[in-house]
Every structure is written in C-alpha cells, then in structure tokens.
C-alpha cells in the first residue's frame, strides 16, 4: 500500500473531517484534521492502516492567526510512510481529545504540551505537571507571547 491509496482510504472513511491533504512524496503525507475527530482517525490509522508508532506529538503557536496547531507525527513498522496530522485549535481555549487510549506513549507528550502551551487534553488519564517547576505552572512558556524571560543576565560577559 502506498501513500496515495492510504490517503484515499482515509479520506473516504472520514469525509469532511480530513482536509488540505498533500502527498509530498511516496513516504510523506501531510493532512489537517478536525480536532474533535482526531481520536477516531488515530484509531482507524492504527487498526486498519498499520500506523503503529506515534513518533511525536507537539504544538505550534501562531499568534498572528490566533491559532495553536497540535501536530501528530505517526509512523509505521510495516511500511515507510510517515503521516503528519495537524489539528487547528483556537488560541483562547485550546481543547482537544486525548489520543492516549490509542497510542499510550502520547501520555507524556500531552502532559508536556499541556504545560508548555496550555493545550487542554480532554479525557487524558493523568494530566499532572511533568517538566516545569511549580511556580511556573500556568505560564505556558513556549507560547510566542511569553514575557517571563530573564532580562538581567550574563553580567560576567559584559
């Protein structure tokens, strides 16, 4: 099964929830998904198209478009295709369904993304703080408009 037939199977199964599909090469697909369907799509990818490996999950902040993109990079052990899914969320209230029931290793990715970007994962089993010190929780430091950078630094250099 090559990239073209995969994406055809996916778009016919989820009509309207997958859009802006581009097949970059034989092994690269990029698609945008509706946030509320991401778990069903991941379930279908894992069960039917043998995309068994969630390589990474992270977020990208676009303050000009007032959007936060959650990006899923999903690979496979059976074929060379790497699929990039992007879900676009509003910046004021980013909420998305958790994919931990499908890909268990998304657990820590989602905890980290929640801390650094403030993307709220619904039905996540355990959304505890992971990386940040306690006093920085809720500051979302990887958002582009974060202001808490130290400005009195490196006095030894100057």
């Amino acid at each position: 099964m090559d990239a073209k037939t995969m994406i055809d199977s996916l778009s016919s199964q989820f009509t309207g929830t997958i859009y802006d599909v581009s097949v970059e090469s034989d092994i690269r697909i990029i698609a945008k998904v509706k946030p509320e369907n991401v778990k069903d799509i991941c379930r279908y990818l894992k069960d039917k198209l043998s995309f068994g490996h969630l390589c990474c999950e992270f977020a990208v902040d676009y303050p000009n478009r007032n959007e936060i993109e959650v990006v899923y990079v999903i690979g496979s052990y059976d074929h060379p295709v790497v699929l990039t899914l992007k879900a676009i969320l509003p910046r004021d209230n980013p909420e998305i369904e958790s994919v931990v029931p499908v890909y268990w290793n998304a657990n820590w990715y989602e905890r980290e993304t929640y801390e650094l970007f403030g993307v709220k994962y619904l039905n996540h089993p355990d959304l505890r703080p992971l990386v940040l010190p306690r006093e920085m929780l809720g500051e979302w430091p990887l958002r582009k408009d974060y202001k808490g950078f130290p400005n009195k630094t490196a006095r030894n250099l100057v």
Binding site: M136, P141, Y146, G148, F149, P150, T153, A154, R155
Partner: peptide
C-alpha cells in the same frame, strides 16, 4: 554555569549563579 551559555535568557534556567 558562568553566564547561561546557550541557555542565556532561557525561561527555564536560573541566571547569575554568582
């Protein structure tokens, strides 16, 4: 440790250890 190095002005590092 001296100045932050590549983590100069990072949100996560403590600055001015001296």
């Amino acid at each position: 440790a001296i100045s932050g190095g590549p983590f100069y002005e990072s949100y996560s590092t403590a600055q001015n250890i001296d």
